[in-house]
Protein backbone atom coordinates (compact mmCIF):
# COMPACT_ATOMS: atom_id res chain seq x y z
CA UNK A 1 0.00 0.00 0.00
CA UNK A 2 1.10 3.52 -0.68
CA UNK A 3 0.00 5.64 2.27
CA UNK A 4 1.56 8.77 0.92
CA UNK A 5 -0.92 8.98 -1.93
CA UNK A 6 -3.89 10.46 -0.22
CA UNK A 7 -5.20 13.43 -2.05
CA UNK A 8 -3.82 15.01 -5.09
CA UNK A 9 -4.98 18.55 -4.36
CA UNK A 10 -3.15 19.07 -1.09
CA UNK A 11 -2.58 22.69 -1.97
CA UNK A 12 -6.19 23.46 -1.04
CA UNK A 13 -6.09 25.43 2.26
CA UNK A 14 -8.55 23.09 3.95
CA UNK A 15 -5.78 20.67 4.65
CA UNK A 16 -3.76 23.18 6.67
CA UNK A 17 -6.89 24.39 8.48
CA UNK A 18 -7.80 20.87 9.45
CA UNK A 19 -4.27 19.93 10.39
CA UNK A 20 -3.84 22.98 12.59
CA UNK A 21 -7.13 22.36 14.39
CA UNK A 22 -6.25 18.68 14.79
CA UNK A 23 -2.84 19.56 16.20
CA UNK A 24 -4.25 22.12 18.59
CA UNK A 25 -6.98 19.81 19.83
CA UNK A 26 -4.53 16.94 19.98
CA UNK A 27 -2.54 18.79 22.63
CA UNK A 28 -5.54 18.44 24.92
CA UNK A 29 -7.42 15.37 23.71
CA UNK A 30 -5.77 12.09 22.86
CA UNK A 31 -7.03 10.33 19.75
CA UNK A 32 -10.66 10.89 18.64
CA UNK A 33 -9.44 12.13 15.24
CA UNK A 34 -12.68 11.06 13.58
CA UNK A 35 -14.76 13.01 16.09
CA UNK A 36 -12.59 16.08 15.60
CA UNK A 37 -13.18 15.72 11.87
CA UNK A 38 -16.94 15.44 12.42
CA UNK A 39 -16.96 18.55 14.61
CA UNK A 40 -15.03 20.43 11.96
CA UNK A 41 -17.52 19.27 9.33
CA UNK A 42 -20.33 20.56 11.51
CA UNK A 43 -18.50 23.88 12.00
CA UNK A 44 -17.77 24.29 8.30
CA UNK A 45 -21.29 23.47 7.15
CA UNK A 46 -23.28 25.03 9.98
CA UNK A 47 -24.90 21.69 10.67
CA UNK A 48 -25.51 20.38 14.14
CA UNK A 49 -23.90 17.32 15.62
CA UNK A 50 -25.21 14.65 17.96
CA UNK A 51 -22.58 12.67 19.81
CA UNK A 52 -23.43 9.37 21.39
CA UNK A 53 -21.08 7.76 23.81
CA UNK A 54 -20.67 6.48 27.30
CA UNK A 55 -19.61 8.95 29.98
CA UNK A 56 -15.97 9.75 30.45
CA UNK A 57 -14.64 9.67 26.90
CA UNK A 58 -13.88 13.40 26.74
CA UNK A 59 -16.90 14.57 24.79
CA UNK A 60 -17.13 17.89 26.63
CA UNK A 61 -13.39 18.41 26.64
CA UNK A 62 -13.21 17.71 22.93
CA UNK A 63 -15.92 20.19 22.02
CA UNK A 64 -14.42 22.86 24.25
CA UNK A 65 -10.97 22.30 22.77
CA UNK A 66 -12.26 22.59 19.20
CA UNK A 67 -14.16 25.75 20.14
CA UNK A 68 -11.04 27.23 21.67
CA UNK A 69 -8.99 26.33 18.58
CA UNK A 70 -11.28 28.40 16.40
CA UNK A 71 -11.79 31.08 19.05
CA UNK A 72 -15.51 30.42 19.41
CA UNK A 73 -17.61 31.40 22.37
CA UNK A 74 -18.51 28.19 24.17
CA UNK A 75 -21.33 27.39 26.58
CA UNK A 76 -22.55 24.17 28.06
CA UNK A 77 -25.98 23.17 29.32
CA UNK A 78 -26.49 20.05 31.35
CA UNK A 79 -29.97 18.87 30.44
CA UNK A 80 -32.12 17.63 33.28
CA UNK A 81 -35.76 16.72 33.65
CA UNK A 82 -36.65 19.98 35.42
CA UNK A 83 -34.99 22.25 32.86
CA UNK A 84 -37.32 24.86 31.35
CA UNK A 85 -37.20 26.41 27.87
CA UNK A 86 -36.50 29.78 29.47
CA UNK A 87 -33.40 28.29 31.09
CA UNK A 88 -32.01 27.85 27.58
CA UNK A 89 -33.51 30.66 25.58
CA UNK A 90 -33.68 33.36 28.24
CA UNK A 91 -36.50 35.39 29.73
CA UNK A 92 -37.78 38.84 30.58
CA UNK A 93 -36.73 40.00 34.04
CA UNK A 94 -38.23 42.88 35.98
CA UNK A 95 -35.53 45.43 36.72
CA UNK A 96 -36.45 46.78 40.14
CA UNK A 97 -34.27 49.86 39.65
CA UNK A 98 -36.04 51.07 36.53
CA UNK A 99 -39.35 49.27 36.94
CA UNK A 100 -39.06 47.99 33.35
CA UNK A 101 -38.60 44.50 31.99
CA UNK A 102 -35.19 43.72 30.56
CA UNK A 103 -34.13 40.75 28.49
CA UNK A 104 -31.91 38.10 30.02
CA UNK A 105 -30.42 36.09 27.20
CA UNK A 106 -29.99 32.41 27.92
CA UNK A 107 -26.93 30.26 27.24
CA UNK A 108 -28.13 29.56 23.71
CA UNK A 109 -26.66 32.91 22.72
CA UNK A 110 -23.24 31.57 21.94
CA UNK A 111 -21.26 30.22 19.00
CA UNK A 112 -20.76 26.72 20.21
CA UNK A 113 -23.36 25.20 22.52
CA UNK A 114 -22.81 21.85 24.14
CA UNK A 115 -26.18 20.34 25.07
CA UNK A 116 -25.08 17.62 27.42
CA UNK A 117 -27.40 14.59 27.68
CA UNK A 118 -30.14 16.18 25.61
CA UNK A 119 -32.40 13.18 26.09
CA UNK A 120 -32.71 13.90 29.82
CA UNK A 121 -34.77 17.05 29.24
CA UNK A 122 -38.51 17.07 28.69
CA UNK A 123 -39.82 17.14 25.11
CA UNK A 124 -40.84 20.78 25.58
CA UNK A 125 -37.25 21.82 26.24
CA UNK A 126 -35.93 19.61 23.46
CA UNK A 127 -38.37 21.23 21.06
CA UNK A 128 -37.33 24.73 22.13
CA UNK A 129 -33.69 23.93 21.46
CA UNK A 130 -34.34 22.13 18.20
CA UNK A 131 -36.51 24.98 16.95
CA UNK A 132 -33.73 27.43 17.70
CA UNK A 133 -31.28 25.14 15.93
CA UNK A 134 -33.47 25.15 12.86
CA UNK A 135 -34.39 28.82 12.71
CA UNK A 136 -31.24 30.23 14.31
CA UNK A 137 -33.31 32.78 16.18
CA UNK A 138 -35.35 32.78 19.37
CA UNK A 139 -38.28 34.72 20.71
CA UNK A 140 -38.20 36.18 24.21
CA UNK A 141 -41.35 38.01 25.14
CA UNK A 142 -42.47 39.96 22.10
CA UNK A 143 -39.05 40.30 20.57
CA UNK A 144 -37.16 37.94 18.28
CA UNK A 145 -33.41 37.71 18.52
CA UNK A 146 -30.93 36.36 16.01
CA UNK A 147 -28.49 33.87 17.40
CA UNK A 148 -24.76 34.62 17.01
CA UNK A 149 -22.96 33.47 13.88
CA UNK A 150 -21.59 30.92 13.67
CA UNK A 151 -24.04 28.93 15.76
CA UNK A 152 -23.51 25.28 16.28
CA UNK A 153 -25.14 22.86 18.68
CA UNK A 154 -23.29 19.74 19.69
CA UNK A 155 -25.60 17.55 21.71
CA UNK A 156 -24.65 14.42 23.55
CA UNK A 157 -26.64 11.35 24.42
CA UNK A 158 -25.70 8.62 26.81
CA UNK A 159 -26.60 5.21 25.38
CA UNK A 160 -26.80 3.69 28.88
CA UNK A 161 -28.93 4.74 31.85
CA UNK A 162 -31.99 5.21 29.67
CA UNK A 163 -34.40 5.25 32.61
CA UNK A 164 -36.17 8.58 32.90
CA UNK A 165 -35.00 9.86 29.53
CA UNK A 166 -36.99 11.15 26.58
CA UNK A 167 -35.74 9.63 23.38
CA UNK A 168 -35.55 12.10 20.54
CA UNK A 169 -38.09 11.26 17.84
CA UNK A 170 -36.93 10.77 14.27
CA UNK A 171 -38.32 14.14 13.20
CA UNK A 172 -36.10 15.88 15.73
CA UNK A 173 -33.12 13.67 15.10
CA UNK A 174 -33.41 14.75 11.47
CA UNK A 175 -32.39 18.27 12.58
CA UNK A 176 -28.93 16.98 13.39
CA UNK A 177 -26.76 16.84 10.32
CA UNK A 178 -24.59 14.11 11.81
CA UNK A 179 -24.88 11.63 14.60
CA UNK A 180 -21.58 10.12 15.58
CA UNK A 181 -21.02 7.29 17.99
CA UNK A 182 -17.89 7.60 20.05
CA UNK A 183 -15.95 4.57 21.07
CA UNK A 184 -13.49 3.93 23.85
CA UNK A 185 -9.88 4.92 23.16
CA UNK A 186 -7.38 2.24 22.30
CA UNK A 187 -5.16 0.96 25.15
CA UNK A 188 -2.28 3.01 23.77
CA UNK A 189 -4.41 6.15 23.69
CA UNK A 190 -5.72 5.46 27.16
CA UNK A 191 -2.18 5.06 28.43
CA UNK A 192 -1.35 8.46 26.98
CA UNK A 193 -4.45 9.93 28.65
CA UNK A 194 -3.32 8.60 32.00
CA UNK A 195 0.22 9.80 31.41
CA UNK A 196 -1.01 13.30 30.65
CA UNK A 197 -3.14 13.19 33.77
CA UNK A 198 -0.02 12.53 35.81
CA UNK A 199 1.59 15.64 34.42
CA UNK A 200 -1.17 17.95 35.67
CA UNK A 201 -0.04 20.28 38.45
CA UNK A 202 -1.86 22.24 41.11
CA UNK A 203 -3.80 25.35 40.27
CA UNK A 204 -3.08 27.90 42.98
CA UNK A 205 -5.75 30.31 44.17
CA UNK A 206 -4.39 32.62 46.84
CA UNK A 207 -2.81 30.43 49.46
CA UNK A 208 -4.90 27.42 48.47
CA UNK A 209 -4.77 25.17 45.46
CA UNK A 210 -6.86 22.68 43.55
CA UNK A 211 -5.62 19.96 41.21
CA UNK A 212 -5.69 20.97 37.56
CA UNK A 213 -8.03 19.14 35.25
CA UNK A 214 -7.78 18.47 31.56
CA UNK A 215 -9.98 21.53 31.03
CA UNK A 216 -7.31 23.71 32.63
CA UNK A 217 -4.81 22.24 30.19
CA UNK A 218 -6.71 23.33 27.09
CA UNK A 219 -4.43 25.37 24.89
CA UNK A 220 -5.63 28.97 25.16
CA UNK A 221 -3.91 30.10 22.01
CA UNK A 222 -6.38 30.13 19.16
CA UNK A 223 -4.62 29.65 15.84
CA UNK A 224 -7.79 30.65 14.03
CA UNK A 225 -10.49 33.21 14.58
CA UNK A 226 -14.11 33.41 13.57
CA UNK A 227 -13.23 35.19 10.34
CA UNK A 228 -10.91 32.30 9.43
CA UNK A 229 -13.75 29.92 9.99
CA UNK A 230 -15.97 32.06 7.80
CA UNK A 231 -13.35 31.96 5.04
CA UNK A 232 -13.14 28.21 5.40
CA UNK A 233 -16.93 27.95 5.20
CA UNK A 234 -16.83 29.94 1.97
CA UNK A 235 -14.15 27.64 0.63
CA UNK A 236 -16.30 24.64 1.41
CA UNK A 237 -19.05 26.14 -0.71
CA UNK A 238 -16.62 26.15 -3.61
CA UNK A 239 -15.87 22.44 -3.36
CA UNK A 240 -17.10 20.85 -6.56
CA UNK A 241 -19.79 18.20 -6.45
CA UNK A 242 -20.06 16.19 -9.64
CA UNK A 243 -23.28 14.85 -11.08
CA UNK A 244 -22.01 11.34 -10.45
CA UNK A 245 -21.40 12.10 -6.80
CA UNK A 246 -24.81 13.70 -6.43
CA UNK A 247 -26.41 10.63 -8.01
CA UNK A 248 -24.67 8.40 -5.47
CA UNK A 249 -25.95 10.45 -2.54
CA UNK A 250 -29.51 10.74 -3.82
CA UNK A 251 -29.62 7.08 -4.78
CA UNK A 252 -28.46 6.01 -1.32
CA UNK A 253 -31.16 8.08 0.33
CA UNK A 254 -33.76 6.83 -2.13
CA UNK A 255 -32.84 3.23 -1.43
CA UNK A 256 -33.59 3.71 2.27
CA UNK A 257 -37.23 4.27 1.34
CA UNK A 258 -37.68 0.95 -0.44
CA UNK A 259 -35.55 -1.45 1.58
CA UNK A 260 -37.76 -4.16 3.15
CA UNK A 261 -35.99 -3.88 6.52
CA UNK A 262 -36.57 -0.14 6.82
CA UNK A 263 -39.86 1.15 8.15
CA UNK A 264 -39.03 4.83 7.85
CA UNK A 265 -36.56 5.97 5.23
CA UNK A 266 -34.52 9.15 5.06
CA UNK A 267 -35.89 12.53 4.18
CA UNK A 268 -34.44 14.73 1.41
CA UNK A 269 -32.65 16.54 4.22
CA UNK A 270 -30.42 13.46 4.45
CA UNK A 271 -29.25 13.82 0.85
CA UNK A 272 -28.57 17.52 1.39
CA UNK A 273 -26.66 16.76 4.58
CA UNK A 274 -24.69 14.00 2.89
CA UNK A 275 -23.58 16.26 0.05
CA UNK A 276 -22.77 19.21 2.32
CA UNK A 277 -20.87 17.10 4.83
CA UNK A 278 -18.97 15.40 2.01
CA UNK A 279 -17.93 18.78 0.65
CA UNK A 280 -16.60 19.75 4.06
CA UNK A 281 -14.77 16.45 4.37
CA UNK A 282 -13.23 16.95 0.93
CA UNK A 283 -12.10 20.42 2.02
CA UNK A 284 -10.63 19.06 5.25
CA UNK A 285 -8.75 16.46 3.25
CA UNK A 286 -7.39 19.09 0.90
CA UNK A 287 -9.53 18.40 -2.13
CA UNK A 288 -11.68 20.82 -4.06
CA UNK A 289 -14.02 18.09 -5.21
CA UNK A 290 -15.94 15.40 -3.39
CA UNK A 291 -15.31 11.74 -4.08
CA UNK A 292 -17.17 8.53 -3.14
CA UNK A 293 -14.87 8.01 -0.17
CA UNK A 294 -16.37 11.14 1.39
CA UNK A 295 -19.99 10.05 1.30
CA UNK A 296 -19.11 6.46 2.15
CA UNK A 297 -17.22 7.61 5.24
CA UNK A 298 -20.09 9.84 6.30
CA UNK A 299 -23.02 7.62 5.32
CA UNK A 300 -23.30 5.99 8.73
CA UNK A 301 -23.32 9.32 10.57
CA UNK A 302 -25.78 10.93 8.17
CA UNK A 303 -28.17 8.10 7.40
CA UNK A 304 -28.49 5.81 10.40
CA UNK A 305 -30.26 8.21 12.76
CA UNK A 306 -32.70 9.19 10.05
CA UNK A 307 -34.07 5.74 9.36
CA UNK A 308 -36.03 3.31 11.49
CA UNK A 309 -35.83 -0.43 11.04
CA UNK A 310 -38.91 -2.61 10.94
CA UNK A 311 -39.88 -4.67 13.95
CA UNK A 312 -39.20 -7.84 11.98
CA UNK A 313 -35.69 -6.72 11.10
CA UNK A 314 -34.95 -5.84 14.70
CA UNK A 315 -36.35 -9.19 15.84
CA UNK A 316 -33.95 -10.90 13.46
CA UNK A 317 -31.07 -9.05 15.08
CA UNK A 318 -30.45 -6.75 12.13
CA UNK A 319 -28.70 -3.52 12.92
CA UNK A 320 -28.77 -0.25 11.06
CA UNK A 321 -25.15 -0.81 10.08
CA UNK A 322 -26.04 -4.12 8.42
CA UNK A 323 -28.83 -2.57 6.40
CA UNK A 324 -26.62 0.35 5.40
CA UNK A 325 -24.03 -2.11 4.16
CA UNK A 326 -26.73 -3.68 1.96
CA UNK A 327 -27.69 -0.28 0.65
CA UNK A 328 -24.11 0.66 -0.22
CA UNK A 329 -23.67 -2.60 -2.10
CA UNK A 330 -26.94 -2.02 -3.93
CA UNK A 331 -25.76 1.39 -5.09
CA UNK A 332 -23.69 -0.15 -7.87
Amino acid sequence: MNDSVVDMKSSVPGNSFAETVRTTVGRTVVGQEVVVERIMIALLTGGHLLLEGVPGIAKTLLVQAVGRAVDLQFKRIQFTIDLLPSDIVGSEILDTNTGNFRIHQGPIFTNLLLADEINRASPKVQSALLEAMQERKVSIGDATYELPAPFLVIATQNPVEQAGTFELPEAQLDRFMLRHRLTYPTPEQETEVVRRGLELKLKRQGDGAVPMTAFDAIDDSSPFHVKDLTSAMEAVLNVHVSDVFMRDCVELVTLTRSHPDIELGCSPRAAIALVQASRARAFINGRNYAIPEDFLALAEDVVLHRMRLTYEALAQGRRGEDVLSDLLTALA
Binding site: N2, V6, E293, L296, A297, A299, E300, T329
Partner: peptide
Protein backbone atom coordinates in the same frame (compact mmCIF):
# COMPACT_ATOMS: atom_id res chain seq x y z
CA UNK B 1 -17.27 -0.66 2.30
CA UNK B 2 -16.14 2.79 3.53
CA UNK B 3 -13.00 1.42 5.15
CA UNK B 4 -12.23 -0.72 2.12
CA UNK B 5 -12.64 2.20 -0.27
CA UNK B 6 -10.31 4.36 1.81
CA UNK B 7 -7.75 1.56 1.73
CA UNK B 8 -8.17 0.82 -1.96
CA UNK B 9 -7.46 4.42 -2.92
CA UNK B 10 -4.03 3.98 -1.34
Amino acid sequence: RPEAVARLRR
